[in-house]
Design a protein around this nucleic acid. Structure first.
Lengths: 154, 154
DNA sequence: CTTTCTGCAAACGATTTGCAGCAGC
DNA sequence: GCTGCTGCAAATCGTTTGCAGAAAG
């Protein structure tokens, strides 16, 4: 539970409604199959792999999953994370789940979510936009990972 | 080791000597082929792909390159970066190239290096280690990317 | 009904690996 | 000479795609 995104209990319907809106804006339907993929992602609360989604979604074909994840990504519903082991991980976009970062375990590869205080984020964004601009680069957003050992591996 | 980060003209011998040390510590030789791969990486100054390394290293076979990159990675000489397009990029480790971050272009996929002021880095590390610990996670280091549009794509 | 989704199986492309010959020490 | 490194070609594996039938509106 513990829906992320800051607010203690963001209602399920809100998120689903927003997803529907995002899909509609991309001329895509929210079918039953797609709904089950969304549920798998919401239930995880961290970036998960294709095989993990398949494991909790009986009857879902791998190709449909990949195709739907691509649709979701294009619509801004999910974000794809290329992890070190070559298998991509997916999670709901920050627009839906709130801005956050990742704790990445170097031993087992697990990834979990974590958030920073708002004031830190703001100062960081200021510095980054500034440094980027000096390289002729216009920043859209940042991505920050903490690399180390998870609770189980240390 | 004095030489590190920032200075435009870090002496070749220092870096190569350190690489040799790292390889020796992993029971690996610094052969002529491996030397040419190192040169390709040093010349780039940013994370580059396998095909880019092959392009500037005539006669190098693809399989040897992949094998050597794996050896380098295990020895701490290079770091592998999984980029969004599925093709990995490689660059000298921070131990050799100094701590830095990446500017990632969402349009053309180019990646460039950038550094932040030391005081920012230190404050950030403090906050991150703290937040990570609250999740039972022990931080080794952080990874920070600026995502946006490069000089050519904006 | 028409269009979009879905599952199956085949295709793809980056990366890995088995093997025989060559290079480093 | 022994051991490790290299190149070639074949294998692997995550992901993508063509196609025909099923579901959504």
């Amino acid at each position: 539970m513990a829906s992320r995104s800051g607010h203690a209990n963001e209602r399920t319907d809100d998120v689903v409604a927003q997803i529907k809106r995002l899909l509609t804006a991309s001329n895509q339907r929210l079918t039953r199959v797609r709904g089950s993929v969304i549920e798998a992602l919401r239930g995880a609360g961290r970036p998960i792999r294709v095989d993990e989604i398949l494991a909790v979604t009986p009857g879902l074909s791998q190709s449909s999953l990949y195709r739907n994840l691509a649709v979701f990504e294009a619509a801004g519903v999910v974000v794809r994370i290329q992890s070190a082991d070559g298998r991509a991980r997916f999670e709901l976009s920050e627009e839906l789940a709130g801005h956050h970062h990742h704790l990445i375990c170097t031993r087992c590869g697990a990834i979990d979510d974590v958030a920073l205080p708002d004031d830190i984020e703001q100062r960081l964004d200021g510095v980054l936009a500034d440094v980027a601009a000096k390289s002729g680069f216009s920043m859209e957003h940042h991505r920050l990972d903490v690399v180390g050992l998870c609770r189980h591996c240390r």
